Amino acid sequence: MELILSGMVVAVAALFRGVTGFGFALLAALGLSSLLAPATATPIILIIDIVLTGLILRDFDRAKVDWRACSILLSFGLFGAVLGPYVAFALDDQTIRIATNLAIAVAALVAMLHHPPKWMGHFVIGALLACSVGILMSGFAVGGPLVAAWLLAGGTQDVRVRNTLAIYFGAVDVLGFITRAAAGMLPDNFIALVLPLLVIAMIAYFPGEMIYRRMSATTWRRVCAISLVLIAIIGFAQTIALGL
C-alpha cells in the first residue's frame, strides 16, 4: 500500500512538472512526507528530479537560458547544495517534516505572485535565495519556486525561466545527491525503492509535456497559479497538523 500511494504521489508530481517545468520536488515532498521518513524520501525525490530535468533539457537551446541569472544561481546555489544534506542529517524527523511543510507553503505562496516586486530581483537577493534554496532542495527537496519568483522579478522572460530553472535544479540535485551518497546517507534499500518510482515518474511526465505544448501562455499561467494555491493550502494544513 505504501508503494502504491508513493507511486500515485510521484505520478501526479511528474505530470505537474511536465506541464509547468517546475514543482516536482514541491509536490513529491508534500505527498511523500507523510508516507516515508525524510531521510528516505529526499534522495528518492532528488534522483527522480535529476532524470526529469534531463528530459526537459533534451532539446537544449542556449538562447532559451538567462545565462547571467544562471551564473548567479549556480555560483551560490552549489555551495548551499553541499550544506543541505548535513543540515537535514542534524535534525530529527519531526522537525524536518515541519520545516519541509513550512518551506513548501512559503515557496508556493511566493510563486503565486504574478508580478513579484522589483526589489526581489536584486543580485544580493538572488545570491541569498540561491544558497538558501540550494540547502532546502538538497536537504529537504523543496523551495524551487522561490528561485522562479526571483527570475521573474529580475525580468527573465517566461520562455527562459523553464530552462534556467532546469539547469539550476539539475546541478543542485546532482551535487546534493552525490554529497548524500559520499557521506553514506542513502537508505540501505534505496535502489529497490527508487527504481519503480522512477519508472512511474517518467511515464507520467510525457503526458504533462504534451499538455504544456498545447496550452496557451495565459492558460499555463492560470494552471500554475491555481495549482500553487492548492499546494499552499495543503502545505499550511499539514504544518498545522504536525505542530499539534
Rank of each mutant, 00 (worst) to 15 (best):
M1A: 03
E2V: 14
I4R: 06
S6E: 06
S6F: 02
V9C: 11
A11D: 01
A11E: 04
A11I: 09
V12A: 15
L15M: 12
G18S: 11
V19K: 09
G21P: 10
F22H: 05
G23F: 10
F24D: 00
A25S: 15
L26M: 15
L27Q: 00
L27R: 00
A28Q: 02
A28G: 00
L30Q: 09
L32G: 06
S33Y: 12
L36H: 13
P38T: 13
A41Y: 05
L52E: 05
T53V: 11
I56E: 07
F60S: 03
R62K: 08
V65D: 05
W67Q: 02
R68G: 06
A69H: 08
L73R: 04
L74M: 13
F76Q: 00
G77N: 10
G84I: 05
P85E: 02
Y86H: 12
A90K: 10
A90S: 15
L91C: 09
L91F: 03
D93A: 15
Q94T: 10
T95W: 06
I96R: 05
I98K: 02
T100F: 08
T100P: 01
A105N: 00
A105E: 00
A107L: 08
A111R: 07
A111Q: 09
A111D: 11
M112Y: 12
H114N: 13
H115R: 12
W119H: 01
M120T: 07
M120C: 02
H122M: 04
F123T: 12
F123D: 10
F123W: 14
V124D: 07
G126D: 00
A127L: 07
L128H: 04
A130D: 00
V133G: 05
L136C: 07
A141C: 09
P145G: 05
P145R: 08
P145D: 06
L146S: 15
L146A: 15
A149D: 01
L151C: 07
L152M: 08
A153V: 07
T156E: 02
D158W: 04
V159P: 00
R160L: 13
V161C: 09
V161Q: 12
N163M: 12
T164D: 01
A166N: 10
A166F: 14
A171L: 11
D173K: 09
L175C: 07
I178T: 15
A183M: 08
G184K: 08
M185Y: 13
L186N: 03
D188W: 03
N189I: 02
A192L: 08
L193I: 11
L193A: 10
V194I: 03
L195R: 04
L195M: 13
P196F: 14
L197E: 06
V199L: 12
I200F: 04
I203Q: 02
A204P: 14
F206D: 02
M210T: 13
M210A: 13
I211P: 06
R213S: 08
T219P: 01
W220F: 15
R221M: 12
R221Q: 15
R222W: 15
V223H: 05
S227K: 07
L228H: 05
L230M: 09
I234Q: 07
G235W: 03
Q238F: 12
T239N: 10
